[in-house]
Amino acid sequence: MTRAVQLAIAAVIGGAAAVERKGALQLMLSRPLALGPLLGAALGDVRGGLTIGVPLELLFLGAVNLGATLPDNETIAASCAVAAAVLAGQDTHIGVDETTATLAIALFLPTAVLGRRLERLTEGINRRLAARARATIAAQPARAIRLHLGGLLAPFLAGAAYTGIAAALAPFLAALRRGLDHHLVQGLEIGWIFFLAVCCASAVRAIRDARAPSFAAMASGAIALVTLAVKILHWRSP
């Protein structure tokens, strides 16, 4: 598969995911946990997509579109980070290791905020579409109703543009990854652990229930103790 084809595939999937997120279906195909491996598979590295999709899913687990509130756009962040990391991993022949994943997330996490702003713009376009439909419905009802589907265009174009640009930046990410010295690689590995820790905390917060911290602490404590007990038994056995 040539790089141009990969860029086109990334852009189309990024655009489709942006549409699926709110405008159509909402089957959760645009959530990072689903989008990561799907986009990764389309670009040739399903596991690399999952490596980035898992923490982003946890981080944005509480991103909820309640009424008029707009959360950060986890779909655009995931599609950009996965497209760039998977293609960079292919360029470096390392794949999506923890260092590449950390770099991709650090570089493309801000697109979650940009995506949210873009969604506000989309709402403005949709408001105008609805106003136009209201104004023209008496004269051309079928055409006025079809304007509804025009609302899918802006998110598609935005998602495609963001993901396409991120994928095109993969050689830059690969060069950055290759140029890292040993200290920075170690730093990024610890940064990855800290990032995962924040993702876990964010997941507990996302549940919005007073009992959530206690339940989570009990479950993690129980698993940690069982693991410790298993290890002790293993060490003691001849």
């Binding site: 946890l58 876990c200 997941a203 507990v204 549940i207 229930d209 009992r211 959530a212 911290p213 206690s214 339940f215 989570a216 602490a217 009990m218 479950a219 993690s220 404590g221 129980a222 698993i223 940690a224 693991t227």
Partner: peptide, 9 residues
């Protein structure tokens, strides 16, 4: 919440 704790562990 229990699953979140299990994920962290």
């Amino acid at each position: 919440a229990t699953l979140a704790g299990a994920v962290a562990a």
